[in-house]
């Protein structure tokens, strides 16, 4: 059913894709405020482990969430490629620390599948679907859920 014809009519999703460990994740581009290099993070005591701290984003205080730890992935050293993706979800601005950013990805809707048991490594509720590209699988994150977890 995925003829070129059909694909062109299908709705497309635009995502920003990034690496966490060896996996590729994607976030809806509409939620993304900006992508910045990792800057100095001020730690905040008495917070859960996956809160990295806060940063000063041009006069605004933005909390940084360590996405690896949030998703239960093994931790990794920061590298030159580490980035913070600043997202706005439900009027909450949060920075997500990721290993590296790949770029913008267009996925036709019929290339997206519902999450399945394949996603054993991370909480299935955090995943909204899995997109297939030519050479990779992209795990689409359900940001509302990812962030709501953090507040509890």
């Amino acid at each position: 059913m995925t003829t070129a014809m059909v694909e062109s009519i299908e709705r497309e999703e635009q995502l920003v894709a990034f690496h966490l460990s060896d996996e590729v994740y994607g976030i809806d581009i509409a939620a993304i405020h900006e992508i910045i290099r990792l800057q100095e993070v001020t730690q905040v005591p008495r917070t859960s482990d996956d809160i990295e701290g806060i940063i000063n984003l041009r006069g605004k205080i933005v909390p940084i969430l360590n996405l690896r730890r949030r998703l239960g992935l093994p931790s990794n050293e920061r590298t030159q490629k580490s980035r913070v993706i600043v997202v706005d979800v439900d009027q909450v601005t949060v920075g997500l620390e990721v290993d590296s950013v790949i770029g913008v990805l267009r996925l036709s809707e019929n290339c997206i599948e519902q999450p399945n048991e394949m996603m054993g490594a991370i909480d299935a509720d955090c995943v909204r679907g899995v997109g297939k590209t030519e050479d990779n699988l992209v795990i689409l994150l359900n940001l509302q859920y990812v962030l709501r977890l953090a507040q509890e």
Binding site: V44, P45, R46, I54, V62, P63, V92
Partner: peptide, 17 residues
Amino acid sequence: TLGKLIGDIRGLSGATI
């Protein structure tokens, strides 16, 4: 404020730049 993600932390009322 520290923002909703972090929420209320006992002993802290916020942050400043």
